[in-house]
């Protein structure tokens, strides 16, 4: 199959899953005729009709809450929140209702539901349209968290997410939408909790997610020019977390850099670093390094935004630091 974009991969997957499961419903803002502001749902209303592709008023709480109610009563649902920055508008429905429903009911309630959303900066969209909030959801037991880094993974992971009987936060990145990748013919699913080693290396482990995988790979190529072999791990899912993959790599390299675009403070790197020191303290030759955004909202102006969001240079610098070089 020729190369397709991230957006096309998502669209194709939604379409196939809707054909496969006649109850599957999509719900979200402007997802009908308009096809979503990133074009992910283009054509789906025409194909599946207004009961299965529900374009809503601007009502994030009701989108999530009604997706939950539908999911609990037999309608597998993919709810879309246009920006992850709007999840706080629906926070009660996500945190207090959706995430806890199975547990609170003693396992009686089944919640086959995906919340598709997108995050990230780099486009001058300023403080309320550029955040990376995955760590908020990592802190809430009861939500699976998926963060695909390329079109191939997006497809395999979205299939798994849709078929899962639990709530899944499926977090895309706006800078990935136009990126291309090749996808094999035929169906494939990528199981949750399986990290992907994107590059082998013996000197330092770089753990990354989402768009930062691309940036980490560029940094690794630069490090290679200086004779440093970095191993780059794409976590793909945060919940469940493939900690074994991290552990194995750390045992070989003895040095780790964790990279994410969200704030360093309280970011996913903090959790992973804590687990590493609990499980592999004796293997470490240097303190675990974290690369993440500065602890401020994302500013509009380009030089400020660039200063806040981590880049290749930051990763290279962190890798050298844990290697005590430069």
């Amino acid at each position: 199959m020729p190369e397709i974009t991230f957006v096309e991969s998502l669209r194709m997957t939604l379409k196939e899953e809707m054909e496969r499961d006649p109850s599957l419903m999509l719900i979200g803002e402007d997802i009908g005729r308009y096809g979503g502001i990133f074009g992910v749902t283009k054509g789906l209303l025409e194909e599946f009709g207004p009961h299965r592709v529900r374009s809503t008023p601007i009502s994030e709480s009701a989108i999530i809450g009604s997706a939950l109610g539908a999911a609990m009563t037999g309608i597998r649902t993919v709810a879309e929140l246009m920006y992850i920055d709007f999840t706080p508008v629906a926070m009660d429905q996500i945190v207090n209702q959706t995430a806890k429903m199975s547990y609170m009911s003693g396992g009686k309630a089944k919640v086959p539901m995906v919340i598709r959303t997108q995050e990230g900066g780099g486009r001058g969209n300023a403080a309320q349209h550029s955040q990376c909030l995955e760590a908020l959801f990592l802190h809430i037991p009861g939500l699976k968290i998926v963060m695909p880094s390329n079109p191939y993974d997006a497809r395999g992971l979205l299939k798994t997410a849709i078929r899962d009987d639990n709530p899944v936060m499926f977090i895309e990145h706006k800078l990935l939408y136009a990126t291309k990748g090749s996808i094999p013919d035929g169906e494939y699913l990528i199981p949750f909790g399986q990290a992907d080693i994107k590059r082998k290396g013996k000197d330092v482990t770089i753990v990354a997610i989402s768009y930062m995988v691309t940036v980490a790979l560029k940094a690794a190529a630069r490090l290679a020019e200086e004779g440093i072999e970095a191993e780059v791990i794409d976590l793909r899912t945060l919940v469940p977390l493939d900690f074994d993959a991290i552990l194995q790599s750390v045992r070989n390299t003895n040095r780790v850099v964790i990279v994410h675009e969200g704030c360093r403070t309280g970011g996913i790197g903090a959790e992973i670093a804590a687990q590493i020191q609990e499980e592999a303290f004796d293997y470490l030759d240097a303190p675990v390094a974290r690369v993440g955004a500065l602890n401020v909202p994302i500013p509009y102006s380009e030089p400020l935004e660039n200063a806040v969001i981590p880049d290749e240079d930051d990763i290279v610098r962190a890798a050298k630091k844990v290697l005590y070089r430069g």
């Binding site: 001058g124 300023a126 403080a127 309320q128 349209h129 500013p299 509009y300 102006s301 400020l304």
Partner: peptide, 10 residues
């Protein structure tokens, strides 16, 4: 107005 931190929407 916002020292470049806000932009059009803020």
């Amino acid at each position: 107005y916002c020292k470049g931190k806000g932009g059009s929407m803020h």
